[in-house]
Design a binder for these strands. Structure first.
Lengths: 109, 109
DNA sequence: TTCATGCGTTCAACAAATGAACACAAAATA
DNA sequence: TATTTTGTGTTCATTTGTTGAACGCATGAA
């Protein structure tokens, strides 16, 4: 399942390091290789990321994942969406902590 | 899967309203009836909650879920554990929001 | 008696995630 | 050159977690 969390993180990681492998991506995302492949391919299929084969400094064939122009746009959108979601979570969490703290104080007195 | 979140919420809901049905519990927990039954039974099997059959004011047979003495102890423990977990989440979330906010500011300038 | 309601319980079906296994290409080694 | 090793993306059977319709049962209502 491809959520904004993974959209955001994949865009960010790929932009920072286009030569990242799917295995390393999986490790950094904290998810399995299979899911990483699924999410990444979804972004590729939508034309937001493209795959380049290129020769690196050692003349070795390597993969590079690059954000397309629409991918760059989408990264900005997703980042804002994800941030807003996190800020909402933050407020809810703050309230929940206050509520539980009050329960704890109340129960122990 | 029975996590501290549901342990905490079930203890709290059952203590506040022992006559709650599993369907109402499910609704308040925001999970399915099957999962509610699974979690509640786990707490019953551990001797933390006991089931009473009793006659209510209309002489109708009804169920009541009551925290046992060890259940009351465990509720206090779980509440503290859950609160600590939420406070850790809170700090992580705060940091994450700061990081993303900075990215957004940086990218748009 | 018969029907309707509401209870806990079950479990087939679904959804999501995993990671071992695979085909392939390049590099390293014999 | 030929062979083995390494590292890539890809696949998919398996596992894990969740759902909610369906069931048996007990009570109240008709």
């Amino acid at each position: 399942m491809l959520t904004d969390e993974y959209r955001y993180k994949i865009f960010k990681l790929v932009e920072a390091n286009p030569e990242v492998s799917q295995r390393e991506l999986a490790r950094k995302l904290g998810i399995s290789l299979g899911k990483t492949n699924f999410c990444l391919k979804a972004l590729i299929d939508k034309g937001l990321i493209k795959v380049n084969n290129f020769r690196n400094s050692n003349n070795k064939l390597a993969y590079a994942y690059k954000l397309t122009p629409s991918g760059i746009d989408e990264k900005a959108n997703v980042t804002i969406r994800f941030l807003k979601k996190k800020m909402k979570e933050y407020e809810l969490l703050k309230q929940e902590i206050e509520n539980i703290s009050q329960e704890v104080r109340h129960d122990s007195h």
